[in-house]
């Protein structure tokens, strides 16, 4: 949650390049944990247009239909940071996004999903694709919003581990005998 501004004030500011969105799944785990349903992502190096195209690309790479754009936006945030730190990455992303539009015959964002997937399939292994995919597979699944979405409980030490919080609560199979699996120490 700390990774991204999830409040209305920043949303209304809207200064500079910003990626904007709204939480769609109002009863989903992300929406339930968020203070508002609008989100904004201030951009350092990417334009809003580039950011939107990259977000759609990451959605196609890792399609979780019920996962909020707000989670995908964290990948765009990471790509933006890398572009800001390295002009080579900025150039790679700019030309890659232009290629997406060109291959889509206009606007990549509104091309049919089937066509988008064919375009990505043809780009697999190329530097732009590899850059986005390798950043995405880390950034998309290594954050608190994704943990909420997938039901991963994250850091356990602050909560005392799982010894008293369900490490062995599976009930749809019989418990192994004590010889194979002793009781926890008292």
């Amino acid at each position: 949650m700390s990774e991204m501004t999830l409040n209305r004030r920043r949303f209304l500011q809207g200064a500079g390049s910003v990626l904007l969105g709204t939480l769609l799944f109002v009863n989903g785990p992300v929406a339930l944990a968020a203070p508002t349903h609008s989100w904004s992502l201030p951009l350092t190096r990417l334009s809003g247009d580039q950011a939107e195209r990259l977000l759609v690309m990451v959605r196609r790479l890792y399609p979780h239909d019920s996962m909020e754009d707000a989670v995908y936006a964290l990948v765009v945030k990471e790509l933006d940071s890398r572009a800001a730190a390295d002009p080579g990455v900025a150039e790679l992303l700019a030309s890659g996004v232009a290629t997406l539009d060109r291959e889509a015959g206009g606007d990549w964002r509104t091309a049919e999903v089937k066509r988008q997937l064919a375009i990505l399939g043809a780009m697999e292994g190329q530097p732009f694709f590899t850059q986005v995919r390798s950043v995405a597979v880390v950034a998309l699944y290594s954050n608190e919003l994704a943990y909420l979405h997938f039901g991963y409980e994250g850091a356990s030490y602050p909560k005392g581990g799982y010894l008293h919080r369900g490490f062995n609560d599976l009930s749809w199979l019989p418990d192994p005998p004590v010889k194979a699996s002793p009781k926890p120490f008292a």
Partner: peptide
């Protein structure tokens, strides 16, 4: 030293 208690992943393996 007693064995450790098995977790959910172990229950599936054991069965």
């Amino acid at each position: 030293i007693p064995g450790l208690p098995g977790n959910n992943n172990f229950k599936v393996m054991y069965n």
